[in-house]
Computed example of a mutant assay.
Amino acid sequence: MLPNQKLLDEIGGKISQVISNSPARDIEKNIRAMMQSALQKLDLVTREEFDVQQEVLLRTREKLTELETRLAQLEALAHAADHPQQLEP
């Protein structure tokens, strides 16, 4: 036979009350505080900041690719101007 829900709720409530008044609750608070302090020292960035920097990096890479292509074209033109005999068949 299954115990009724009211009995289970009462037992759960009593257990929660005992834990909240016990040293276990203080230990949990201390551990949370230590973890929060440790994470703050790591100097982590938020997901939003990471996404923004990722976008900036993507645009920078695209611009670099464009500039590399343009530089190659200008070098080819300069080489052709310096060596006109290689252009004629």
Rank of each mutant, 00 (worst) to 15 (best):
L2E: 13
P89R: 04
K29Y: 11
E28A: 11
D26E: 10
Q5Y: 09
A33E: 14
K14G: 07
R47E: 05
Q85A: 14
D43E: 05
A76F: 09
E62I: 08
S22R: 02
T69S: 13
E48H: 01
E68I: 03
E48R: 03
K41A: 10
Q53Y: 10
V45K: 03
T65A: 10
A72G: 00
T46E: 01
L7K: 07
Q85M: 15
M35K: 13
L77E: 14
G12E: 05
L44R: 01
L67E: 02
G13V: 02
H83Y: 07
N30S: 11
V52E: 01
A78L: 15
L8W: 02
L42F: 05
D82C: 15
T46K: 04
T46L: 03
T69M: 12
Q73T: 07
E66K: 03
H79P: 13
L58A: 09
V56Y: 10
Q53N: 12
D26F: 08
P84H: 08
T65W: 12
S16P: 00
L74V: 07
L87H: 14
E66A: 03
E68V: 01
L8M: 04
A33D: 13
E68H: 03
A80V: 14
P23R: 08
L39P: 02
Q5S: 14
A24F: 04
L58P: 12
H83V: 13
R70Q: 04
V56A: 10
T69W: 12
Q17F: 10
L44S: 01
V56K: 09
S22K: 01
L64Y: 05
E28N: 08
L39R: 07
R70Y: 02
A24L: 03
E28Y: 11
L2F: 08
R47W: 05
I27R: 10
K41R: 00
L74D: 09
T69R: 13
